[in-house]
C-alpha cells in the first residue's frame, strides 16, 4: 500500500490537508509525521505551511526536517503547498530577507503596495485572499481533469519568482501575472490551498496521490 506523508514541523494547522487527502486517497495511507524515517519511507511527501517564512525556516532547521525535505525533493513526488512552496526557493523578502531551501532557483517577493487592476484602477487588497484563476502553462499529469483557468483558494501576501521560466506550471492574475504553480521534475508546488479549493482542489490532490513523479 502506497503512503503519503504530510511533514509536520509545527507550522500551523495540518488538519485540513490531512482530511482532504484522506477524502481522495481512501486506499492510501495518509500520515502526519515529524519523524524523518517515517516521512522518507512514504512514497509521496506533502510539504505544507502557513504563517511567516522566518518561523517556518527556523522550525525546519531546529527539527532537522530541512534535510528531509531536501531528500524527499531528490527522490520522490513532492507537493509543496503555500508557504511550503515558497520555502523551496532560494530566498524570501519576508522578515527582512530569509534564506530558504534553494531547491528551485528563484526568490519570493511581496505584492507591491498600491497594486491596481482594471480601467478605473481600483486598489487591490493584500493579502490576496479568495478564489482566483489558475492558468496552466504546460501539460502535466498533475493537471489531469482540471479545466483550464479553474479557480483555487488563495491567501498570501508574497509570491514566487523562479529564475527559470520553464519551472512555471501556472500563472494567476492579481495586478500582475504571478507564478502560482511551480513544477520541476518530481516537484509540484502550489501557492493556493488545494485542500480548501473544493472540486478542483480535491482533483489536484487525487492526481498527486496517483502521480509517479513524471511530467
Amino acid at each position: 500500500m502506497t503512503s503519503i506523508a504530510i511533514i509536520d514541523y509545527g507550522m500551523g494547522n495540518l488538519h485540513s490537508i490531512a482530511k482532504a487527502l484522506e477524502h481522495v486517497a481512501s486506499k492510501e495511507r495518509v500520515i502526519v509525521s515529524s519523524q524523518p524515517a517515517q516521512i522518507l519511507a512514504a512514497d509521496r511527501v506533502v510539504f505544507p505551511g502557513v504563517g511567516a517564512i522566518r518561523d517556518c525556516m527556523a522550525e525546519l532547521m531546529r527539527s532537522g526536517l530541512n534535510e528531509v525535505v531536501l531528500q524527499a525533493a531528490a527522490t520522490k513526488p513532492l507537493l509543496g503547498v503555500c508557504l511550503g512552496m515558497q520555502a523551496l526557493l532560494n530566498i524570501s523578502e519576508e522578515n527582512q530577507g530569509t534564506e530558504c531551501l534553494g531547491i528551485i532557483p528563484g526568490k519570493v517577493v511581496r505584492f507591491p503596495e498600491e497594486l491596481q487592476e482594471g480601467a478605473e484602477g481600483s486598489r487591490l487588497k493584500i493579502p490576496h485572499m479568495g478564489w482566483n484563476q489558475v492558468h496552466q502553462q504546460c501539460s502535466h499529469s498533475m493537471w489531469t481533469d482540471i479545466p483550464a483557468g479553474s479557480r483555487f483558494y488563495f491567501v498570501h501576501s508574497y509570491y514566487a519568482v523562479p529564475e527559470r521560466v520553464t519551472d512555471i506550471a501556472a500563472v494567476t492574475p492579481y495586478g500582475i501575472d504571478f507564478a502560482s504553480v511551480l513544477a520541476h521534475e518530481n516537484i509540484f508546488a502550489v501557492q493556493f490551498h488545494p485542500e480548501k479549493s473544493q472540486h478542483a482542489g480535491l482533483q489536484l490532490l487525487s492526481n498527486f496521490v496517483h502521480w509517479n513523479g513524471d511530467i
Binding site: E117, L124, H128, G130, W131, Q133, G149, F154, P173
Partner: peptide
Amino acid sequence: MGLAKRII
C-alpha cells in the same frame, strides 16, 4: 478576469 468576489 481575476480574483472573484465571495459570497459567504
